[in-house]
Design a protein around this nucleic acid. Sequence first.
DNA 1: CCATTAAATTCAA
DNA 2: TTGAATTTAATGG
Length: 244
Amino acid sequence: MYVTGSHNNSITSNCETCNRTNCVIHKNKGVLFNSTLPQSSTILKCKKGQQFIIEGAPVNGLFFIKSGTVKVFRTGINGREQIVRFAKGCEIVGHRGFGTQEYYSIGAVALQDVELHYFSKEHLQSALLENPKFAYDMMLFYANELNRSENKVKSISQMTVRERVIDTILYINRKFDDINGFLSLPLSRKEYADYAGTTEEQVIRVFSALKKENLIMAKGKKIGIIDVSQLKKEINEHNYFLDS
DNA sequence: CCATTAAATTCAA
DNA sequence: TTGAATTTAATGG
């Protein structure tokens, strides 16, 4: 098994050809790219591991992910990282700083090589004011994010560690496809822990238990789900309805 | 939490 | 493509 050239498995998601029905960028590309402003959007490329939003830095605009995967986090109590969400192509990052907030309350780093569309605040403001459809789509996005965030508070305060870890696996599974039985997004145990609100060791132990129970399989960073319905069942018993 | 060992990834040649 | 170097996973105290 080998990779030819420098083309790793980057998802070629050109916004012109992207046909995700739920993509805010795609649905509003006329508004976003045909602006009267000369330089409406700049494309930014980040290599794996590169941080493109720094906590506390002033907000100048918003990022739309063109391709690749990103993790969004905030630094918690004793320097512990809390992963807020994982984002992929067609999603927006840095949106909470938009509007009133002056500084980012989150950081964002590329988990793989990433391409970003960057739009300035000014450009987006005029696009939003002039185009109700775009504003409406953005509002839906914000509402959805708020819902997700509220669910997360619930899950962290009320679920057991095991349930939170399962919840995290299912979240990754829903959001990122399988490649022959394994989750296509490789994450370290620490990253699972930071999302689930626990420690690396706890994640490792839950993983080991789940492996013994034949619910998942793990080969290094490659995690495969064997029995999705059984895992869902454990979560559903506690009435947790999950986000996208 | 930390220390140890096993395993997996990365990197350079 | 390989194996040495480095990083990450797993376990037990």
